[in-house]
Nucleic acid binder design. Sequence first.
DNA 1: ATAAATGGTGAAACGCGTTTCAGCGCAACT
DNA 2: AGTTGCGCTGAAACGCGTTTCACCATTTAT
Lengths: 321, 321
Amino acid sequence: MSNIRDIAQAAKVSVTTVSRVLNNHPHVAKEKREAVLQAIQQLNYRPNINAVHLSRGKTMVVGILCPFINHSYYAALLEGIAEKAHSLGYKLMIIQTYYQRERELEALEMLKHKQMDSLIVLSRILSLNQYEEYLSYGRIVMCEKIEHKGFQSIYIDQYSAFQCAFEFLVQKGHENIGYSTGREMGYSSNQREKAYIEGLATINQNIKKEWVFTNSFFLEDGKKLLKNLLELNKLPTALIVTNDMVAAGIILESKKRRIEIPNNLSIIGFNNDPIAEAMGITTISLPLKDMGSQAFEYSSKKDITSPIKVSFSLLERNTVQ
Amino acid sequence: MSNIRDIAQAAKVSVTTVSRVLNNHPHVAKEKREAVLQAIQQLNYRPNINAVHLSRGKTMVVGILCPFINHSYYAALLEGIAEKAHSLGYKLMIIQTYYQRERELEALEMLKHKQMDSLIVLSRILSLNQYEEYLSYGRIVMCEKIEHKGFQSIYIDQYSAFQCAFEFLVQKGHENIGYSTGREMGYSSNQREKAYIEGLATINQNIKKEWVFTNSFFLEDGKKLLKNLLELNKLPTALIVTNDMVAAGIILESKKRRIEIPNNLSIIGFNNDPIAEAMGITTISLPLKDMGSQAFEYSSKKDITSPIKVSFSLLERNTVQ
DNA sequence: ATAAATGGTGAAACGCGTTTCAGCGCAACT
DNA sequence: AGTTGCGCTGAAACGCGTTTCACCATTTAT
């Protein structure tokens, strides 16, 4: 493989001039430019991208930190991200963390080592303090609400979204409402918990701890959730569920157990996954793809803006009565 | 940020020795090793990964070429790939092609420029000849059956899988069978077409072109498919569908139109997505995650093996009668 | 006519880690 | 005592593109 010096020699110019031609810098005489282009053609030359990166200290790669890939929420975000990344000429490096500290740290280190120019964090487990150290190495976009200086934040107001679901249920006459989330801690869970507690207060209800389920991410978790639910003495009449996948699991298991939905139990999910439509799940629809796309845009913008809120909407189907 | 020469100076050794310590080469005296480690600690030194890549001509990055991310088939493969990649210390670069030639070429160029060590192709559109040129730059793993020398191939026998579905339907008494695929051309479609034609021959049926549907990938495509189907004079009694998502779309639209499944129309899907379980879709279950994992393994193996076939199994639920 | 600005060009330094190779010291072997 | 051989070490070359800076040749401005 030929390198830039070979081209310079072949075109009888300096490497500087070759570099200028390659990068469309001005101040190159027509003849020289053409000589260079010809040499490039003839020697089938391609710049060594690693050398370019080393030299420039920039890689045109953006890292994406997500706990899972094969999960509708993240896959939808990813799709939006990937689309925008391509249109802006960036490549994506996806780091699946499974919510493990080391993996998250690894990604941060990659940012530090300039293996990526910036990092988009779809969900995290490390503290903001830990993240802060790395801010000087590249832009960090967080897909959660963060007021902390230095981070770009774009988020769905999980508090309001949950509130919206909650109020909808109340309006339908429900008072015994439970909910499920993914991680016990974390942005979304915290917001939902807060909205839950405050929601209950508005209808003068106390928190029933046994109606709060955590660690529900996938379809299978929904099935388990329903099994656990049935062990309780008193059942809620409605459940606000982590996402539509989990909701689907709950519904499936309900069918098996002859629990009628929505007659015996109302279910409301999040995301508006295809499965929600398929099963007629009432859900809070989130514009994930669009959010991903925006998140990417902000990863390469020069300045940080104040947190960006993206909207959501309730989609009534037939799992709430 | 300090570099390897700073460390050498601080530890009063040569850069060579520092490099040896960093890479755990033998032949470094204990004291020197410790001096280096201490200097590294003190200066908070981290190797510049781009320099390492440039120097080594290796990146520990594997490229993944897939048409879509947010698609259950690819997402499942991706999951297996990502898991194995991490356990082997590799990073993933995902290139979403949307089946566009340029994008595929771009990925190939990245392989050439050593931006990735190898490439895993989940689905392609470019010809093998075009791919062949790039074989010398790194391993290329193809997730389809390829006998062509130089490529590592790992695949699901789409012919047999389709045949399995077909025979199952025949056994249930169906004679009027249609099917759908994704792209008009492409590995999977070709295999399915072949199996379809040969299957029809075994039951002395002629091909009904109007019962063959292409460009069906997602749920929405399934809905459209059913609408189109209903325009026909004579309907098939059974459909072998691209994947479970499309099958779900068909089923949903059927409900709207009062077509009873399986009474009026039998449906068999592929993949065994969560949605298949959710909707009770009879399907050919494919071990995609495992296949992804294996594909990754072979991307960094020294030698190429003959094509690897992965198994599948029919999962009977309630969309076939 | 003279000073100043502009275009064009290349040598050399830079970014940074890896690898080759030559050389030194000391222990083991004849 | 003389020769191998092995462990350890560092100078220098290497991978390769970018950028700075100095310098010459024209133009343009005064």
